[in-house]
Design a binder for these strands. Structure first.
Lengths: 216, 216
DNA sequence: TGTACATCAGTGAACGCGCGTTCACTGATGTAC
DNA sequence: TGTACATCAGTGAACGCGCGTTCACTGATGTAC
């Protein structure tokens, strides 16, 4: 919310309005989905004329890109903060679920249906690597890595571009990846409403998947 | 593709054009996503005027609803056919993946990001139950159900609205549900492109998750 | 088999709408001397 | 501290566009006698 202090009033004002635009954008996305995002509608809600927004964003695409970036960064920061506070995989799972439930459409903007043709900004890839890094740290801390490598372990050990220079052993690679996909599986179906009317509590299912992965 | 035979030429023609409209709709969805679906654009591609389509669909929403229904039905039919051919959970997993890869946007239309406000037609709920029924059958056939019930088993046994009158024991409920969420987790991330650039082969991860669930 | 009539697929003009985006402008805010 | 100038936020008019959808119509296809 706050930017650097050593800035001119005009710069501070600009940053503030940019932020306000983004907030309205998120509201609009929450209300009607990302595909319905419209600069004119945002301007109207802010009591401004449409063209005014072009002082702050070059075009609609730049705004969306910025939102995707922000969402990614926020998730990475959330996960990172938890990890630095000594959280294990189980806590990270809780944090992830909370983050998703806080704003489902934000979760979907990152992990949801991609629009064919649209490509996320390049720096999100790096943020994704950072998030995986946190999961790898936690996996290493909790996994004994004593068992013999599974076939998947071997495959991942040979294709670990995504882990960068992380010192995680193959079993941790598999574990972090599985952690991600299993939790996403439950979360995305829950957020998309596919469990509504089924009767059970998604939190129970999520908790069980988490326990299977962490042994807590 | 073919409809009932005992129909007038006009009826057959209508059904044929309806089908052609849907095919073009799928192409358009595959090219630019469901939110970009436009009746006028379809008409243009078919060499017709826009209003002509209103002979076949009351409006845009009805077309989309029909596509969702068709996708659901097609998935149910695919899974059902496999099961009747004696397939186990592992084969069903393969069939699911194939179905998803055949047309990712079709998969997303069913399981992807929901548009806030839009509600799927009521009969899809029943089809979803049917699909779960097939998974439950297969789970029962493969699970020994000897182990003591887990806490989740107990919860599901008490909240099994989605299983209807299916005779599956609690452990099978949990197993079918987990089968669904885990495979969806891998599939949806793969289809959304979140594994691209990571280096490994999603099929390996999918296969491992399948094996964990089936013991094959 | 031929004629009279009904059905109905498809057209073209028209509607209002909201979109993204550009442009020339006004007026307030900040800067330099 | 006061004046002259530059910066820049925001406006309003305007652009072309494609959308969904309606309406009155034409002309081909099918039906009844």
């Amino acid at each position: 919310m706050a930017k650097a202090d050593a800035s001119t009033p005009r710069q501070r004002y600009r940053a503030q309005v940019r932020e306000e635009i983004k907030e309205h954008a998120w509201q609009q996305i929450a209300a009607a989905g990302a595909s319905a995002l419209s600069l004119n509608a945002i301007a109207k809600r802010m009591g401004m004329s449409g063209p005014a927004l072009y002082r702050y964003f070059a075009n609609r695409d730049e705004l969306i890109t910025e939102l995707v970036r922000d969402a990614y960064r926020d998730l990475a920061a959330t996960v990172h903060a938890r990890a630095e506070a000594g959280a294990g995989l189980g806590d990270l799972a809780d944090a992830l679920r909370q983050w998703a439930l806080d704003d489902p459409q934000r979760y979907f903007l990152v992990y949801g249906t991609p629009v064919p043709g649209y490509h996320a900004p390049e720096d999100t890839r790096q943020i994704a690597v950072e998030i995986m890094g946190v999961l790898l740290d936690a996996s290493m801390a909790e996994q004994p890595s004593a068992a013999p490598p599974t076939p998947l372990d071997t495959h991942l050990a040979e294709h670990r571009a995504w882990a960068g220079a992380h010192p995680a052993p193959p079993s941790a690679l598999r574990h972090a990846l599985t952690f991600w996909t299993r939790l996403h599986g439950v979360l995305s179906l829950e957020l998309a409403g596919h469990f509504t009317g089924m009767g059970f509590d998604p939190a129970e299912l999520y908790a069980t998947e988490t326990e299977t992965l962490t042994g807590r």
